[in-house]
Simulated scan of single mutants.
Amino acid sequence: MPNKVAVVTGGSRGIGRAIVLALAGAGYQIAFSYVRDEVAAMALRDEVQGLGIDCLALQCDVSSSDSIKGFFERVDGHFQRVDLLVNNAGITRDGLLATMPARDIVEVIQTNLIGTLLCCQQVVPGMLRQRGGCIVNISSVAAQKPSKGQSNYAAAKGGVDALTRALAVELAPRNIRVNAVAPGIVKTEMSTALIGSQEEEIQSRLLIKRYAEPEEIAEAVLYIADRGLYLTGEVLPVNGGLKMP
């Protein structure tokens, strides 16, 4: 379909940036959100527009329902439709649960799980009217194979997996597919900060002895959106064969 419109949350850097560029390369018009890094967001917007693709870069904090609502209102005003939603925005606040501040529990679940749910809620009515659409949630290997100190993050991403399956059941009668991609360790700023002194231990658990490139996660998203048309309600692991400790 010409002029397909994709929305990517948290699209200015890392995995989100790779997803934006992959979708633009496939011909999608793009709207993506960012929280703070306006310079990176505008640079990416200009890069996409240089490909001849219409692109919106808008500030949005997915931990805020009002911010989400305002973001999607602007997207709808510009494009009048959404064919693909990629819920990529997320945060980590790792630490042992016994000493974890309550705000770290609330912020991680609010951003990663509730933010994803609210973004889905914003696009579903339009997709129902169109009788078609695709939602791809970015989950994590931590939902199934968490490391120590990830109780809040694993709980949030486990919720994303459950949301994916439940929403797929709900929306299938209107030709709307809902899936998730669960990356392992990806070479991004966020992952580098989290790995720290655990690198040797993490490497020992990988069957493919390297970390994923952001573009490899983007390719999985593009596959689900454009080619995996018989997939719904699935969580696709892209983790290099990560083993439990």
Results as ranks from 00 to 15, higher is better:
residue 63 S to G: 15
residue 114 I to Q: 00
residue 75 V to H: 05
residue 122 Q to I: 03
residue 113 L to S: 00
residue 80 Q to N: 14
residue 82 V to R: 00
residue 94 D to S: 09
residue 108 V to I: 10
residue 65 S to G: 12
residue 104 D to Q: 14
residue 102 A to T: 14
residue 74 R to E: 14
residue 115 G to D: 06
residue 107 E to M: 09
residue 103 R to H: 13
residue 121 Q to N: 11
residue 112 N to R: 00
residue 63 S to A: 15
residue 116 T to L: 05
residue 99 T to L: 09
residue 124 V to M: 08
residue 105 I to F: 15
residue 111 T to R: 04
residue 110 Q to R: 14
residue 89 A to Y: 06
residue 108 V to G: 03
residue 86 V to Q: 08
residue 72 F to G: 10
residue 95 G to S: 05
residue 115 G to N: 01
residue 122 Q to F: 02
residue 86 V to R: 12
residue 77 G to L: 13
residue 106 V to M: 06
residue 83 D to R: 03
residue 91 I to C: 04
residue 67 S to G: 08
residue 108 V to A: 10
residue 87 N to Q: 12
residue 61 D to F: 12
residue 111 T to D: 03
residue 103 R to Y: 09
residue 106 V to K: 09
residue 69 K to Y: 12
residue 81 R to F: 03
residue 70 G to F: 06
residue 62 V to F: 06
residue 102 A to S: 13
residue 98 A to K: 10
residue 79 F to A: 03
residue 77 G to A: 15
residue 78 H to I: 00
residue 62 V to R: 00
residue 108 V to F: 08
residue 107 E to N: 15
residue 76 D to L: 13
residue 88 N to Y: 10
residue 76 D to K: 13
residue 98 A to G: 00
residue 81 R to N: 05
residue 124 V to D: 04
residue 62 V to H: 05
residue 83 D to E: 09
residue 124 V to L: 01
residue 78 H to L: 01
residue 64 S to V: 11
residue 77 G to E: 15
residue 108 V to R: 02
residue 65 S to V: 11
residue 109 I to Q: 01
residue 84 L to K: 10
residue 81 R to M: 04
residue 72 F to D: 03
residue 82 V to A: 00
residue 61 D to G: 08
residue 86 V to W: 12
residue 105 I to V: 15
residue 76 D to H: 14
residue 66 D to L: 15
residue 117 L to T: 06
residue 93 R to M: 11
residue 122 Q to E: 13
residue 98 A to C: 04
residue 97 L to S: 12
residue 101 P to T: 01
residue 114 I to H: 02
residue 104 D to W: 13
residue 90 G to A: 12
residue 75 V to Q: 04
residue 112 N to D: 15
residue 125 P to D: 02
residue 76 D to N: 15
residue 83 D to P: 07
residue 70 G to Q: 14
residue 84 L to S: 02
residue 85 L to C: 12
residue 125 P to E: 05
residue 90 G to I: 09
residue 70 G to E: 14
residue 79 F to N: 07
residue 106 V to G: 00
residue 99 T to V: 13
residue 78 H to T: 14
residue 115 G to E: 02
residue 68 I to E: 07
residue 83 D to K: 05
residue 88 N to A: 11
residue 113 L to P: 04
residue 95 G to H: 07
residue 108 V to D: 07
residue 100 M to D: 06
residue 100 M to L: 15
residue 76 D to T: 14
residue 92 T to C: 02
residue 72 F to Q: 08
residue 69 K to C: 05
residue 84 L to W: 11
residue 98 A to R: 10
residue 110 Q to C: 01
residue 109 I to N: 08
residue 98 A to F: 07
residue 72 F to L: 11
residue 108 V to K: 03
residue 123 V to W: 00
residue 64 S to G: 08
residue 112 N to K: 06
residue 101 P to C: 07
residue 90 G to S: 08
residue 103 R to L: 09
residue 109 I to Y: 07
residue 119 C to A: 02
residue 121 Q to W: 03
residue 107 E to T: 05
residue 122 Q to R: 12
residue 104 D to V: 07
residue 116 T to A: 11
residue 79 F to H: 06
residue 72 F to A: 08
residue 87 N to P: 11
residue 123 V to G: 01
residue 109 I to H: 03
residue 93 R to I: 07
